[in-house]
Structure formats: C-alpha cells, structure tokens
Amino acid sequence: MPKHQLNPNKWIDLYSDYLFNYTIARVNDREMAQDLVQDTFLAGLKSMKNFKGDASERTWLISILKRKIIDYYRKINSKKGKAEVKIAYNNDSETEGDWLEERVADPFDKTAEDDLQNAELGNAIYECLSKLPEKQAEVFKMKTIQGIETEVICNELNITASNLWVIIHRARTAMADCLKENWF
C-alpha cells in the first residue's frame, strides 16, 4: 500500500494558490504563471499512473511544475537567441560624456536573495494556510492576500461582517502561532 494517494478532485482547491505563488516567484508574469499551473494539473492528470506514492501529492505536483518552468525558460531563451541584443549605455545627447554612475547596481535594490527568501516565506505562509479549516483559509486569503473589501467578501460567501471578523481573528491567531517558530 503506497504511503500517499492522489485525489485530483481536490487539486484546484488545495494546491492552485501554492503552485501559483511558487511559479510567480520564478517567472514574474501572472498570465504565464496561471498557464503553467494549469498545464501542471493537466500533466499530473495524464501521468497519474506513474505516481508511486513515496512523495506527497503536493511534492509530486511541484516536481512536474519545476519541469514546466524549465521548459518555459528553454523556450524563451531559444527565441531570445535569435534576436540581436544591443545595449545602449548612453543614448541621450545631453548627458553624453557623463560617467555611467547611474547604471551601477543599487545596493538597496532587491536582490535575488531577497526574492528567494520571499518565495520561501510565501511557501511557509501557504503551508500554514493549509493547516487552517477551509473556510478560515479562504476568508484570510481573500481579505489579507487579495485585499478584497469586507462587504464584497460577505456578499460572496454569504456571511455577516461580525462573522467575518470572528473568522479573521481565529485565522490570524492560528497563522501567527504557525509562523512564529521560523519567521517571527
């Protein structure tokens, strides 16, 4: 009996945001990230018979997604290779002769390391969200990550405002406890 089993009926609810966050940190294009997540689910469905059950469902889907991301970069790199890339250091005639100081990398700018840490933190947030009851996770995501107005969430989920704040309170307490160990 394998340790883990696949249940594709739950994939979209359980993993779409996690996979999306993983992808957007790497491709930096919302539409492309959404396409890659969809391709991952479809590819997962096709290769379900290859799942041995050693890894968790999510790890297995991430391994498919990683391959999709690599393929995506291969594709755009081969396109780039055909185009001639010219870098103009100084096109402006008024500033001609000025040194290239402005082009020096800003040490306070975001670095690849920051991005990596953000991606890890994002994963940790989704890890903690997956431990919350479904409703709490959904309301927390809509309110905190998507920044949707209270009234809109109440209408969409058919709950009262005071209901929403109780859910948010529980979710925030659980999230803080969960993230406390590594990120606070």
Binding site: R30, N118, L121, G122, I125, Q146, W183
Partner: peptide
Amino acid sequence: VIKNSEVKCMD
C-alpha cells in the same frame, strides 16, 4: 511578515 513576503494568489 505577510506584506514583506509579497505572497500572491490566483484571482
């Protein structure tokens, strides 16, 4: 922490 993470989710 959530603001710094710039965590995203699908619409």
